[in-house]
Design a binder for these strands. Structure first.
Length: 393
DNA sequence: AACAACTGCAACCGCTCTAGT
DNA sequence: TACTAGAGCGGTTGCAGTTGT
């Protein structure tokens, strides 16, 4: 893979940008746009490599950048998204308009990470450093481990969805061209304007579904909102999400009316993978490999897996997690094992979302569960309310 | 006042991904 | 299909400013 050697060229300036250089770059881009970054420095009369120019522009000069202190809301968002996505700064930045990934990354490393560490929370796993909290019952550690897998899986899932959306967009583009006059997606932009839906193969995100099943303002069934197997003999409907109900604070609630239990017709994951072929989602994400056939729905509170079988093999070690999570299992798992997450946002506004449970850190188990619920709900709401043009969705 | 240690941030480096040929 | 250039991303570095001794 060709790595750009642009900065190796002799005579190119490095280091801090001078106001004059900024001015040149700004003026050039305002007039011509950036076009090819590689060609830009010469045209703009800068002794910099294109890469350096791009960075300067995206991280500093861009007019739509908000600089200065991060608000409480922003901090909260960063922490929540980091819990979900890890160090994927660009993805996180997509949820924070006007902030750059670099800025967020720096802010995390210099402020938030330390703050979490001070609170006794591991900034990497977002779990308490000592798991004593969790040791109230024997199951907790096990559940926490599962949850960790789930979080990783979720992260990977988002990535896969993003890819599917991209592909869907491409496809919809050609679709629109071939079947012109389809009423246009209108306001929502992004996903909602695309004729196809990533949910076609992977109906998991409530908001995603809400957007993708709504075409041109009508409640149409997306052409691919149902998943069918390529194997004709087994052609069947995987999931069909119908309608959306009220939206609470940006979190769209999806009802899975079909409650279709396809597990029974798919007792064997291996067989399923074979039969589904291209419909499984083999994707890698930071060393994971997942093949995920599943459907989920968002009830008023966290995820409910109506049926799932998740195989996760990590880093080639195949430390597989064959979780037979029964219905509601995942919800339970989140609720019961994500206790470590609660109070994470304590520093930002009274702790873990809402704190009507009273602020006692060692509260009752009900408080504990409430906090967990709130924590994950806030993450889900956050994700669900993410901008439609986010590459994640 | 001088120095060291710490902090915060801009910029760079090197890798991966993607599109074009 | 293979290769390359360009762009993007995340990790790291370097330095200026601040704080502590």
């Amino acid at each position: 893979m060709g790595r750009s050697p642009c900065c190796d060229k002799v005579g190119l300036k490095k280091g801090p940008w001078t106001p004059e250089e900024d001015q040149k770059l700004l003026a050039y881009i305002e007039e011509h746009g950036h076009g090819s970054w590689r060609a830009l420095p010469a045209k703009a009369g800068l002794q910099r490599c294109g890469k350096s120019c791009r960075l300067r522009w995206t991280n500093y000069l861009r007019p739509d950048i908000k600089r200065g202190k991060f608000s409480l809301q922003e901090e909260q968002t960063i922490i929540q998204l980091h819990a979900l996505l890890g160090n994927r700064w660009s993805a996180i930045a997509n949820h924070l308009p006007k902030r750059t990934d670099n800025e967020i990354k720096n802010y995390w490393n210099t402020h938030l990470k330390k703050r979490l560490a001070k609170m006794g929370i591991d900034p990497v796993t977002h779990k308490p450093k000592s798991d004593t909290l969790l040791s109230r019952d024997g199951q907790s550690n096990k559940s926490a481990a599962k949850l960790s897998h789930m979080a990783q899986w979720e992260s990977a899932r988002l990535e896969a969805e993003a890819r599917l959306v991209r592909e869907s967009k491409l496809r919809s583009h050609s679709f629109k061209q071939s079947s012109s006059g389809g009423g246009g997606g209108g306001g929502g932009g992004g996903i909602s304007s695309s004729g196809f839906s990533s949910a076609s193969t992977f109906a998991a995100s409530g908001q995603l579904l809400a957007k993708t099943t709504r075409i041109g303002g009508d409640h149409l069934e997306s052409p691919t909102s149902t998943l069918t197997f390529s194997d004709n003999s087994k052609q069947q409907q995987m999931t069909e999400f119908v309608g959306t109900s009220s939206d609470q604070q940006g979190g769209t609630i999806i009802k899975d009316e079909s409650e279709h239990d396809w597990k029974s017709s798919m007792p064997n994951l291996g067989e399923f993978k074979e039969s589904v072929g291209s419909h499984t989602l083999p994707f890698t994400s930071t060393g994971f490999h997942h093949d995920i056939p599943m459907s989920m729905s968002l009830e008023t509170t966290p995820w409910t897996i109506h049926d799932s079988r998740i195989k996760t093999s990590m880093g080639g070690h195949c430390s597989s997690l064959e979780n037979d999570i029964e219905a509601e299992g995942f919800t339970e798992l989140l609720l019961n094992s994500s206790g470590e997450q609660s109070g994470l946002l304590e520093g930002s506004g009274g702790g873990g979302g809402n704190s009507e449970n009273g602020g006692e850190s060692g509260g009752s188990s009900r408080d504990y569960l409430e906090d967990n619920k709130n924590y994950w709900n806030s993450i889900l709401n956050l994700v669900n309310s993410s901008p439609s043009d986010s590459p994640l969705f």
